[in-house]
Amino acid sequence: MKNKGKVIIISGPSGVGKGSVNGELLTNKDLKLEYSVSMTTRAPREGEVNGVNYFFVSKEEFANAIVNNELIEYANFVGNSYGTPRKYVEEKLNEGKNVILEIEVDGATQVLRNEENVLSIFLMPPTLNELESRIKGRATESDDKIKARLDKALLEIPLKHNYDYVVENDSVENAVSKITDILIREKCTESNEESKFKELVKIVENIVDQKYTYFINNWEANVKLLAHNKEAKKEANDFDARGELIKILSSEVYRKTLAHGDFSKINDVEYVDFKIQKLMFKINFFSIKQRSDFSGD
Rank of each mutant, 00 (worst) to 15 (best):
L245M: 12
V176G: 06
S295A: 15
K59V: 01
S11F: 09
R291M: 10
L225A: 04
D170L: 03
T140L: 13
L154I: 09
R255C: 09
I100P: 05
K234T: 06
L71G: 05
I9Q: 00
I288Y: 15
L150T: 08
E90H: 14
E193S: 12
Y82L: 05
V204N: 09
L123A: 11
D268N: 13
G5L: 08
L101F: 08
R185W: 05
F294K: 15
L183W: 03
R113F: 12
K136N: 04
S38M: 04
Q290H: 03
T140V: 08
F197A: 11
V201Q: 07
K178R: 13
P85A: 10
G51C: 07
G83Q: 13
E91P: 02
V21F: 01
N218C: 06
N76E: 15
N50M: 00
H161G: 00
I66A: 11
E194S: 12
N267F: 01
N237Y: 12
L112P: 12
E104A: 13
G17C: 09
V201W: 00
S20V: 13
E90W: 09
S292G: 03
E60K: 15
A232V: 04
D164A: 12
S14E: 04
N98A: 02
T109H: 02
K211L: 12
E34H: 02
A43Y: 02
G83D: 10
K247C: 03
D164P: 06
N129L: 13
N28W: 03
L200P: 01
E194P: 00
V118N: 10
E141R: 07
Y82C: 05
G243M: 03
R42D: 01
K278M: 08
V167M: 09
V167H: 11
I184F: 11
A75D: 13
K2N: 13
I10M: 08
K289G: 07
S191A: 11
L71W: 04
Y35E: 12
G296Q: 12
T180F: 00
I8H: 07
K230R: 07
V208I: 15
R45I: 01
N267C: 13
V78M: 11
N218R: 14
R185D: 15
A108W: 11
N217R: 06
S120T: 10
V166T: 14
K278E: 10
V269D: 03
L154E: 09
